[in-house]
C-alpha cells in the first residue's frame, strides 16, 4: 500500500475518533438528544473493511453505532452531524437521529436500533443484487450481542441455503451493553457459530487495521467471486461506554486501560512512524487540522442549519404521490 494511502487511513481513523469525541461533547451540552453510541476503540473495523469494499457500490448496513460506517461509505460528515443536531440538512432530514443515519447515494442503507434487525435486511440487499444480476455485495456490520437474536440464525441459514452474496462483519467488542460475552453466549468464538450453516468464517484482531484489511480482502473476494456469504469476526473493544448513559460498572478500569494499549490509532501511528511515513509533528498537525475541520466546517454547519418545519411533520409517512 502506498505511503499516501496509509497516511490517509491514519487520518480517517483519527478523524473518526475526533468526530465521535465532539459528538460526546455536544451531547453533554444537550445539543444532541436521544441515545448516542460512539465508536472510539473500534475504528479499524469499519475503516479497514470498507477500505477493501467498493465504496458507493456495495450495499452497507449496520446497527445503531453507525456514524463512522456512514462516513466511510461516503456520507458527508456535515450531514451526519446535522442529523445528530436534528436539522433539516441532516442525512435523514432530522427524522432519524444518531441511530438512523442514511446515505442512499453512497449505498449506506442505514443504521438500525433493533439488535439483529439488519441481518435479514442485508440478506435482502443480496437477494436484490442477485435478481438484478450485478456483482456488488451486501455488507452487514453488527456487534457480538446481535448473534443471540433469532434473526442471526434464521438469516445465516437462508443466506447459505440461497447463496446470497453478503459479508457479515461481527465487531466483537466483548460486551452486549453491560453483559460480558461469556455470560451471554454459550460459544464465545462468534465465527464458530456459523459453522452449522456451512458459511466460511474467520476471526482476526480488529485493532490492527493492516490485519483487518488483509482478512477483509480475502472475505470480500470470497463473497464477490463465489457469490455466497462469509462471516468475519473482528476482535475489538469500545473504549467508551455502550452509550452516553453507561455507568461502566460492568468492567474494570484495568481492563479498559489494557485495551487502550491496543488502541487502533496508536498501533497504526507507531507503525507509520517506524516506516518513516509520519512523525510526531506531522501527526500533531494532522490532528489540529481535523479538529479545525470538525469545529469550523462540520459543527458550524450543523449549528447554522435550519430545523425541520413542524408543518412537515407528516411528510414521509407515505411516499408522496408523483414523487
Amino acid at each position: 500500500m502506498e505511503a499516501s494511502d496509509r497516511k490517509r487511513l491514519l487520518r480517517e481513523m483519527l478523524f473518526a475518533r475526533r468526530f465521535e469525541e465532539r459528538c460526546a461533547q455536544a451531547y453533554q451540552e444537550r445539543e444532541i438528544g436521544g441515545f448516542l453510541h460512539l465508536y472510539p476503540g473500534q475504528e479499524a473495523c469499519a475503516i479497514g473493511v470498507l477500505e477493501k469494499a467498493r465504496k458507493g457500490q456495495d450495499y452497507v448496513v449496520t446497527g445503531y453505532r453507525d456514524h463512522i460506517h456512514a462516513i466511510q461509505c461516503g456520507a458527508d460528515p456535515k450531514e451526519v452531524m446535522a442529523e445528530l443536531y436534528g436539522k433539516e440538512t441532516g442525512s435523514s432530514r432530522g427524522r432519524g437521529g444518531s441511530m438512523h443515519i442514511y446515505d442512499v447515494d453512497h449505498h449506506f442503507m442505514g443504521g438500525y436500533a433493533l439488535v439483529g434487525g439488519p441481518f435479514p435486511l442485508a440478506a435482502g440487499f443480496a437477494k436484490a443484487i442477485k435478481l438484478r444480476g450485478g456483482d456488488e455485495i451486501a455488507i452487514c456490520f453488527l456487534g457480538d450481542g446481535a448473534n443471540n437474536q433469532g434473526t442471526f440464525h434464521e438469516t445465516m441459514n437462508m443466506a447459505s441455503l440461497w447463496k446470497l452474496p453478503v459479508l457479515f462483519v461481527c465487531e466483537n467488542n466483548l460486551y452486549g451493553i453491560g453483559t460480558a460475552i461469556e455470560r451471554a453466549s454459550s460459544e464465545i468464538n462468534q465465527y464458530l457459530r456459523v459453522a452449522p450453516y456451512k458459511i466460511a468464517a474467520s476471526q482476526v484482531d480488529g485493532q490492527d487495521i493492516d490485519v483487518v484489511m488483509a482478512e477483509a480482502e480475502k472475505a470480500i473476494t470470497h463473497v464477490r467471486e463465489k457469490r455466497e456469504p462469509y462471516f468475519l469476526e473482528l476482535m475489538t473493544y469500545r473504549l467508551r461506554g455502550h452509550s452516553m448513559s453507561d455507568s461502566g460498572a460492568y468492567r474494570s478500569k484495568e481492563e479498559v486501560e489494557q485495551w487502550a494499549q491496543r488502541d487502533p490509532i496508536g498501533i497504526y501511528k507507531k507503525r507509520l512512524e517506524a516506516a518513516g511515513i509520519i512523525d510526531a509533528a506531522a501527526f500533531q498537525a494532522m490532528d489540529e487540522e481535523i479538529l479545525e475541520q470538525i469545529e469550523n466546517e462540520i459543527v458550524r454547519f450543523a449549528l447554522e442549519s435550519p430545523e425541520p418545519r413542524v408543518e412537515d411533520l407528516e411528510r414521509y409517512v407515505y411516499v408522496a404521490e408523483g414523487a
Partner: peptide, 13 residues
C-alpha cells in the same frame, strides 16, 4: 421474521 426482513431489504433496493 427473517424472510420478511429479507423481503424488506430487497424492497429497499
Amino acid at each position: 421474521n427473517s424472510y420478511t426482513g429479507i423481503g424488506i431489504g430487497a424492497a429497499m433496493l
